[in-house]
Each structure stands twice: as C-alpha cells, then as structure tokens.
Amino acid sequence: MKPAKKQTGPSRDWLQRQAEAEEKYSSMSVGGPVSDLGMLKPPQEVEISAKTVLARLVELARRSRWMSRQDLAQSAEVGLDDVASIEQCEDRELEPRTVHKLALVLKLPESPLMELAGLVHCHGERLGAAAVRFAALSRCADLSKEEQRALREFVKTLSELSTGE
C-alpha cells in the first residue's frame, strides 16, 4: 500500500453544498451483494428484533399491574438487573429460570416468552407477525388505551400459541 498523502479537510463551501444536497435525497445507502444482508426481501419477511418485543411486553405487563421494576424483581425472585436488562433491550443472555419466573408473576404464557427471549424456537411466523403488530402499537410512555388493547391482543395470541390453537 502506498503511504497515505496528507489529507486536508474539505472546504466549508463544499461541506455546505453537501448538507443542502443530503436534505434533498432520502437515502445514501450502498450495498451488494444484497443477498448477504437479506436486502430487498419482501417486507413481510422482515423480522423485528424479538428482544425489542420482549422488552415492551414485559414493561407493559408490569405497568399494567402497577408494579415497579423493583416490585417485579422481588415478586419473581429475580435480579433487578435482569428486569432492567430485559426492559432496556440489552444484548444479554437470559436464564430460562428468569423467564419462567417472570412469566409466572406477569401471568404471561411461558413458551412464547421463551421464544422471544431467544431460548427456544417453535412458533415461527405467527409469533413474528403478532410481535410486529404489538411492537408497532406499544411505544407511548403512558399505558394508553391503545397500548392496553395491544397488550391484551398480544397476550391472547401468545396464549393461543402456547396452547397450540
């Protein structure tokens, strides 16, 4: 490799032009071969992060019972850091026991919860579709009526999945 030449920064004028141009164009993404990243897959095949869905599900289920994170950790006999880690969507391995205990306290079906936690894989597409719908409707800070409805519907789907309906 040749030694790098000393690089001077771009001119202010150039930078200004780029900033204005980037406002006009919606995307700058470049990529290929696209199959590596699943790019251009039909959008319905797109998977939302299961851990994101798990985070929202646990948070909403906890709040719907008026529990703090501390309350939930104590009732489920799990670490407060486990609860915080799940709700903050941290990339951390969960123990099956933790998921089992949380499912018990939050009255959520255990097997799909295990799947969302990445511990098992059994419900596939149906769970994925329900999870995407749920994630799309559960972002507000307060537990709105819309969130309550989303939570009820999602829990119902999880129950159906766990009973094999």
């Binding site: 995407v132 994630a135 799309a136």
Partner: peptide, 14 residues
C-alpha cells in the same frame, strides 16, 4: 442501530 431500526419499523407500521 438495530433497536432504532426496530422502532422505525414499528412507527412505519403504525
């Protein structure tokens, strides 16, 4: 980035 991607996808669906 991945959690932001998921948030954005949820907003687009919503």
């Amino acid at each position: 980035w991945s959690s932001k991607r998921a948030d954005l996808m949820a907003a687009l669906l919503k």
